[in-house]
Design a binder for these strands. Structure first.
Length: 491
RNA sequence: GGUCUCUUGGCCGAGCGGCUAGGCACCGGUCUGCAAAACCGUCUACUCCAGUUCGAAUCUGGAAGAGACCUCCA
C-alpha cells in the first residue's frame, strides 16, 4: 500500500506534479551514472545522493522500486582534446593499461566512495560496453523508421525531420530554428546534414581503441543511445522517472527523448528529475580552475583549498541541507557549520534512550511526524526535514532537562520516527564510534571519568582539568551534566 | 549573443500573498569550581526600480549581478 502522496518537480512540465506510478505500487527509476575515466569527485556525489533519496523514499512509502543507474565506459572524447580521442582509450595509452582495466579501476573507486557516502547500490548497474548489441538494434530501428541516415560509416539522427513530426525541444525548451541560426560553421564536420543532428553510431578512426563491429562500420555507439537502449531493456518502453544532473538536459536528455519517441513509438519517460550543480567558493568546479576536488581528497583533507578533512557523512549531510534543485556552494566554513549541526543530531539521537517519561505530553509528536512527511512529500524538501529534526533535537534536550514533558508512548513515537527519517530515509549512518560494542573502551572511560569525579569532589581542579584536556586532545569530548559526566567522540 | 535558472540577515539555507523557518557564528542569561554541552532570550534579511493588492521576500514589468547549457564528444 502506498502510504504517502509524493509530489515531484517534472522538468518536462516545469512544475510540481503528483507522483503516480505507471504500474500501481511499482516504480521504475533510471539515472545517468558516472563516466568512468577519472576519480569520483563532488560532482558525482550530488546526483548519487539525490536519487538515493528518491530510491529510499519511494521504497519507504510502499513502492517496489527498480533503480537502474548506468556506467558509461565507452566512447568518450576529452573536452579539451584537439582530435577526437576516446577518453578511456587515451587514459589507457598513457597508463599502458587495457581500456577495460581503466574502466574497472574507476568503477571500483566510484563504488568505494559511494559506499562511504552510504549511497545504496542500484538494483541494476548496466555498463554501456555490455549493451552494444542492444544499442545497434535500436539504431537500426531508428534507421528503419526513417529518422536517421548513414554518412561515411556513421549514423546520425535526423533532428529536423523529428521536429516536423513530433516537435523538438520539449524538455530543454530549445527551438530548432534558433539552434541552427546560432550554430557556428566548423570545418570537417560535414558528415551531418544538419548541425543539430547527433550521432547514433560513430565510425572509429584508426587510433580509436574501443571499437565494435556493426552493420555500418567498425566503431562505437553515440553517447545518447546507451541510456535509451538500457532504460528500455530494463524498465520498458514507458517508465516512471529518469534522473540526472541539470547539465545533461541538453543535449543528452533531449536526444534521449528523440530516440525513444522514434524507437519505441512513444515518449518513454513520465517524470524527468534534475539535480542542480555544485560550485566551490562560488565557482564552477573544473580541473583548469584548480578547484577540482575528489571525494577522497575531502575524506583525507588532501587539497590546497581544504582547511581539514571532512568525513563522508559530513558531506552527505551538507548536500542534503540544500534542496536538490538549487545550486550548492561548498566552502570550508559551510562544511564545518554542517558538521556541527550533524553532531547535534547525533547527540540528540543518543539522548532519546535516556528520556524520562511523564504522564502528559507538552508536545504534539504526531503533528511533528506529519510535518516530516510533508517536507519529504513536497519534492523531497530535505532542508525542511532537517529543520524538523533540529526541532526534535530541541524537544529531546528539553525533555531531558525537564523543561518539556513526553509520555512513554510519545517518546517511542519520537524515537522511532527520528531514526526513520535520519537514518533510513536521509541515509545518515548512526554514530557508531562511541556506541558500538567496544566494552573495553566503555569500561576505561567509566574508570577515567570516575577518577576525574573523585578529583572534582576533592576540589583538585588541576587533575580534573588535565584529564578533560587530555581527553579533548585525544578527540573525546567530556560533558558534565547533572547526572554526572558523559563523553562522546568527535568525528 | 541565444535559451533557461538563480539573487534571502556575518555564513549556509527554507519559504511561493498576510503568521518565528532552521543550522552555524555573535551577544546576554540559566547551569557549572571553570569550561564545554544543553536550555532560554536578543540581534542582524529578503539585489535595485516601478506596478498589481487592503497587504509582497512571495505576483507582474524593467535594471544590475551570478550560474548552467548553447561546435565536436561523453
Amino acid at each position: 500500500m502506498i502510504t504517502q502522496e509524493l509530489t515531484i518537480y517534472n522538468t518536462l512540465q516545469k512544475n510540481k506534479e503528483k507522483f503516480i506510478s505507471l504500474i500501481p505500487e511499482h516504480a521504475g527509476l533510471y539515472v545517468c551514472g558516472p563516466t568512468v575515466y577519472g576519480e569520483p569527485h563532488l560532482g558525482h556525489a550530488r546526483p548519487a545522493i539525490t536519487f538515493d533519496l528518491v530510491f529510499r523514499y519511494l521504497k519507504h512509502i510502499g513502492y517496489k522500486v527498480r533503480y537502474v543507474r548506468n556506467i558509461t565506459d565507452v566512447g568518450h572524447l576529452e573536452n579539451d582534446a584537439d582530435e577526437g580521442e576516446d577518453k578511456i582509450a587515451k587514459k589507457a595509452r598513457l597508463d599502458q593499461l587495457e581500456p577495460m582495466e581503466v574502466a574497472q579501476f574507476y568503477i571500483d573507486s566510484y563504488h568505494k566512495a559511494m559506499d562511504k557516502l552510504n549511497v545504496l547500490r542500484p538494483s541494476i548497474e548496466p555498463r554501456a560496453s555490455g549493451h552494444i548489441i542492444e544499442q545497434i538494434e535500436m539504431v537500426q530501428q531508428i534507421l528503419d523508421k526513417g529518422f536517421a541516415y548513414i554518412s561515411n560509416g556513421s549514423v546520425y539522427f535526423d533532428v529536423p525531420k523529428f521536429d516536423q513530426e513530433f516537435g523538438y525541444g520539449k524538455l530543454s525548451g530549445r527551438v530548432l530554428e534558433d539552434m541552427i541560426s546560432n550554430t557556428r560553421e566548423l570545418d570537417g564536420q560535414d558528415e551531418k546534414r544538419n548541425a543539430a543532428d547527433f550521432a547514433l553510431w560513430k565510425k572509429a578512426s584508426p587510433e580509436h581503441i574501443m571499437r565494435w563491429n556493426s552493420p555500418w562500420s567498425i566503431g562505437f555507439p553515440g553517447w545518447h543511445i546507451e541510456c535509451t537502449a538500457m532504460s528500455t531493456k530494463y524498465l520498458g518502453e514507458h517508465f516512471d522517472i529518469h534522473g540526472g544532473g541539470m547539465d545533461l538536459i541538453f543535449p543528452h536528455h533531449e536526444s534521449e527523448v528523440c530516440q525513444s519517441t522514434v524507437a519505441n513509438g512513444k515518449e518513454s519517460v513520465k517524470y524527468w528529475m534534475h539535480n542542480n550543480m555544485i560550485t566551490i567558493n562560488g565557482q564552477k568546479m573544473g580541473k583548469s580552475l584548480g578547484n577540482f576536488i575528489t571525494l577522497n581528497q575531502f575524506f583525507n583533507g588532501d587539497h590546497a583549498m581544504l582547511e581539514r578533512s571532512y568525513n563522508a557523512m559530513n558531506i552527505r549531510f551538507f548536500i542534503m541541507q540544500a534542496h536538490y534543485r538549487g545550486t550548492l556552494d561548498f566552502s570550508n566554513e559551510a562544511l564545518i557549520a554542517a558538521e556541527k549541526g550533524m553532531l547535534k543530531l547525533n547527540a540528540a539521537d543518543k539522548l532519546i534512550e535516556k528520556l524520562p517519561a511523564s504522564n502528559n505530553s507538552s508536545e504534539n509528536i504526531s503533528e511533528w511526524v506529519k510535518r516530516c512527511y510533508e517536507a519529504m512529500n513536497d519534492d523531497l524538501n530535505t532542508p525542511k526535514l532537517i529543520a524538523e529534526l533540529f526541532d526534535a533535537s530541541r524537544i529531546i534536550n528539553s525533555v531531558k532537562d525537564g523543561h518539556l514533558q513526553l509520555t512513554a508512548s510519545d517518546i517511542d513515537l519520537l524515537k522511532e520516527n527520528f531514526r526513520l527519517f535520519y537514518y533510513d530515509i536521509l541515509g545518515m549512518v548512526p554514530d557508531t564510534a562511541a556506541v558500538q560494542g567496544e566494552d573495553v573502551t566503555e569500561k576505561l572511560m567509566d574508570l577515567i571519568l570516575e577518577i576525574r569525579q573523585d578529583a572534582k569532589t576533592n576540589k583538585n581542579w588541576g587533575v580534573a582539568d588535565m584529564i578533560r584536556n587530555k581527553l579533548t586532545d585525544a578527540g573525546i569530548v567530556v560533558k558534565d551534566t547533572k547526572e554526572g559526566a558523559e563523553w562522546e567522540r568527535k568525528n
